[in-house]
């Protein structure tokens, strides 16, 4: 294990990362490592810094301190974004103009294509991604005609279309029906068998529990606990240490 770490750097590593939103310090020193092929879940109450952690990882929140490396490269110098697939917290997949499922998913190929037009391998990758999330037969439908769970599957397919080595997902299960949860679990299993790593924010492990190698529980911007597979069964039912603790609500979920 140690030898593996010296030969290949981890896919993602955070050491003492701090970050602020406005005047509020949201991350107070996060340590986190995701190795090749690992699936790591970030858990914690609302406002504990889960989303800010992933948004820092994908470069959307500037860290104020600590070290953050993607594929062994400091975030500041990291440019190889095609290696990373991002599923933002459920925005809607719809804009002010109609777009088909395929058009939205094809945007996931832009990191690879740059200014070149889409070729046959791009179309195939888009089709594979749609099949993975079970929407291949809806490719020509408008995203406006989809249910909430299907919207989420479109956003996941968009990330998968880029064939990323690291998949970062912010609450992919939020508001997603059971069918879509099962589809997502299947898609994730497929990704990890081909060697991809996954970092995802969850409120509960649900049907994803068997896939998860490690869960990292955040509390108040710090890592409170890291659990291996042994504890994961308990967490599938009771993700938080103290369910009677007052709920922290805020903008920073």
């Amino acid at each position: 294990m140690a030898e593996q770490h010296t030969t290949a750097p981890p896919v993602l590593s955070l050491r003492g990362v701090t970050a602020s939103l406005g005047a509020r310090r949201v991350l107070r020193g996060i340590d986190l490592t995701v190795g090749r092929g690992e699936v790591v879940a970030l858990l914690g109450a609302n406002g504990s810094g889960k989303s800010t952690t992933v948004r820092t990882v994908v470069g959307q929140v500037q860290p104020t301190g600590g070290d953050l490396e993607l594929f062994g490269t400091p975030l500041r110098r990291f440019r190889d974004w095609r290696r990373l697939g991002y599923v933002p917290q459920r925005s809607t997949a719809a804009g002010g103009v109609p777009a088909t499922v395929r058009e939205v998913v094809a945007a996931g190929r832009l990191a690879r294509r740059r200014l070149r037009p889409l070729g046959r391998d791009d179309r195939e990758a888009v089709h594979r991604a749609l099949e993975l999330v079970g929407l291949a037969d809806r490719a020509r439908d408008s995203v406006n005609a989809l249910s909430g769970g299907q919207h989420q599957r479109v956003l996941i397919a968009r990330a998968l279309a880029g064939e990323p080595e690291l998949l970062v997902m912010d609450e992919p299960l939020a508001g997603v029906d059971l069918v879509s949860q099962g589809v997502l679990a299947e898609a994730l299993r497929e990704q990890t068998t081909r060697g991809a790593s996954v970092l995802l924010v969850l409120h509960e492990l649900g049907p994803l529990a068997p896939l998860i190698d490690r869960s990292v529980v955040l509390h108040d911007g710090r890592v409170e606990r890291v659990d291996g597979t042994a504890h994961l069964h308990d967490q599938a039912c009771h993700p938080y240490p103290d369910p009677s603790a007052p709920a922290r609500t805020g903008l920073l979920t």
Binding site: V58, G59, Q60, R79, W81, R82, L84, Y86, P88, S91, A93, G95, A99, E103, V104, A106, A107, G108, L110, A111, R113, L115, L118, R158, G162
Partner: peptide
Amino acid sequence: GLRRQLFAVCQDEEFARVTGL
């Protein structure tokens, strides 16, 4: 000429940024 790029930016700006556009 830039319709795919502009489409991605106008559809989901945050995703477009993470794509490296």
